[in-house]
């Protein structure tokens, strides 16, 4: 356990991809913050219309799904292909919960006539969360592919880079939301 790895778990290519994705989000976050600095009152006023309860459920859902993914990796390290697939399915279910709650939130705002052009706050709120929303879908697709392969017995206790690759991507999706949640919903 003491000898450290030279490369992070999973395929190095996914880490380069993760870095690229994270930098896009970093730019987005900074753009949000600096634009907010110019329209503090507008942002503070319309932030009140967001429902933090939904955001709480979603944050808990994503963290839980990330945890399930950690367990999936642990399972395959112990050689349990079925266990791995089961944990992954649980993680995907949590992702689905996120999508449902997020859709309800969108539904609420859209039914009040909110669009990307309503004001700068909503423009950022919708853009940021929607871009993240698409990442959740993509992450779920990746996890599903990994789960299918795991169930078919494609991974073993020694060879399971694919599981770690999918896991790393999913944690990235979680990581982004961890910043997005306080920034857009709470910080004022």
């Amino acid at each position: 356990m003491t000898d450290k790895l030279k490369q992070p778990p999973g395929d190095l290519a996914i880490w380069i991809f993760i870095c690229a994705e994270l930098s896009v989000f970093a730019v987005f976050f900074a753009a949000y913050a600096f634009t907010r600095a110019k329209h503090v009152e507008l942002f503070n006023q319309y932030q009140q219309t967001l429902n933090t309860n939904y955001a709480l459920i979603n944050t808990l859902a994503l963290i839980t799904s990330s945890y399930f993914v950690v367990r999936a990796v642990a399972a395959i390290r112990e050689g349990s292909q079925r266990g791995c697939a089961r944990w992954l399915l649980a993680a995907i279910a949590m992702g689905a919960l996120f999508l449902v709650v997020k859709s309800m939130e969108y539904q609420h705002h859209f039914s009040h006539g909110v669009t990307l052009s309503t004001n700068t706050f909503y423009m950022f709120y919708i853009s940021l969360t929607f871009f993240h929303f698409m990442h959740v879908i993509m992450g779920m697709v990746i996890l599903a592919a990994v789960a299918l392969k795991a169930r078919r017995g494609a991974y073993t206790a020694d060879r399971h880079t694919g599981v770690e690759t999918g896991a790393s991507y999913w944690h990235m999706v979680d990581l982004v939301w961890i910043i997005l949640f306080p920034l857009v919903y709470v910080m004022r």
């Binding site: 896009v24 730019v27 987005f28 753009a31 990307l116 052009s117 423009m123 950022f124 853009s127």
Partner: peptide
Amino acid sequence: PDFWQWWGSI
């Protein structure tokens, strides 16, 4: 619409 300024730039 205006949001393209941001979407396009980023």
